[in-house]
């Protein structure tokens, strides 16, 4: 049974779609590290906030899923710019500890604000694709999982184009390489910082929108995501967004096969095991720390 090719293909399909979700959830963390050299400890809460904003836009405003998602991404971009302006911009010239503490504080505030506003009882957000599934050669593909894959493709190709061709994207790549040289040529590093925060938060919120219908919503739902995101970012190379994509898929596949052929305990430990092995053997990650497009 374990070697049944259809079963193995099903595990691959599951792992692949889960892994692209990991990559989508992690890319914001990789972006902030790669471009600003800062660690965002409110990353999980950005994901959580995106999910709750989606819930709010659908339940309170009565918007359909797709429109609520667009509204949420815009709100998240604004919030990310604000977070960058308040927490990161004043600390650009200080050590990374200031931003670690600042974002940690923001994360705690967000968790409690959401608990105050929505309560601690798990909530559910419904997506029209949730109950859809179709079959190819015996392998089941689930609608919402396919939406995660499509969103990954759209988000990463959009990000590629933005970094490659837009004026602010060029400045972001420049800042990833040398902030002093940015000042030398007159790139406004504060503005680039706010843009990076906006982009990272919008992408993280988008991950929340497409992934959260698969799970419950609760104020510290970001914890699990943030662990997977750190694993993906460390494995792929701190700040390397393409490394994060590959590491996300690799982690998703490894977990899927471990869970399907081994057991759930092994599956849940994989992220930690690989992360620790990576930090010991190759701390720069598989692909090194670069934002190169």
């Amino acid at each position: 049974m374990a070697t049944d090719p259809v079963f193995l293909a099903q595990l691959a399909a599951n792992g692949f779609s889960v892994g692209l979700g990991y990559a989508l959830a992690a890319v914001g963390l990789a972006l902030i590290f790669g471009i600003l050299g800062q660690v965002n400890f409110a990353h999980g809460e950005l994901y959580m906030l995106g999910a709750f904003l989606l819930f709010w836009a659908m339940k309170q405003l009565g918007l359909p899923y797709g429109i609520a998602a667009v509204l949420m991404a815009a709100l998240m971009a604004g919030f990310g710019a604000l977070l960058a302006h308040v927490v990161i911009v004043p600390n650009l010239d200080r050590g990374f500890e200031s931003v670690v503490l600042g974002t940690l504080a923001v994360g705690i505030i967000l968790q409690n604000a959401v608990r105050l506003g929505f309560g601690a009882t798990p909530l559910d957000v419904a997506s029209p694709l949730e109950s859809q599934a179709f079959e190819i050669g015996g392998v089941l593909l689930f609608g919402q999982r396919m939406l995660v894959c499509a969103t990954f493709l759209a988000a990463f190709s959009g990000l590629y184009a933005f970094l490659r061709y837009s004026e602010i994207g060029r400045a972001m790549r420049a800042m990833a390489q040398n902030r002093e040289a940015c000042v030398m040529v007159g790139i406004d590093v504060r503005r680039v910082t706010r843009w990076t925060g906006a982009l990272a938060a919008a992408l993280t919120g988008l991950a929340g929108v497409v992934i959260s219908p698969l799970f419950d919503l609760y104020p510290n739902m970001g914890t699990e995501v943030v662990i997977k995101s750190f694993a993906v970012v460390i494995i792929g190379g701190m700040g390397n967004i393409w490394g994060a994509a590959i590491a996300g898929v690799a982690l998703g596949l490894a977990e899927s096969y471990a869970g399907g052929l081994g057991n759930a305990a092994i599956r849940d430990g994989i992220a930690f095991i690989v992360m620790i092995a990576m930090l010991l053997a190759r701390p720069q990650g598989l692909f090194g720390r670069t934002v190169r497009v």
């Binding site: 060029r170 390489q177 040289a181 030398m184």
Partner: peptide
């Protein structure tokens, strides 16, 4: 007023051409 700081100050992973384009960023 333009300043070339002490020590290396460029974008090492970008080509000479791209570095020059960024030079005109302001």
């Amino acid at each position: 007023i333009g300043l070339v700081p002490q020590g290396r100050c460029n974008f090492p992973l970008l080509s000479v051409a791209e570095n020059l384009l960024l030079g005109g960023y302001s």
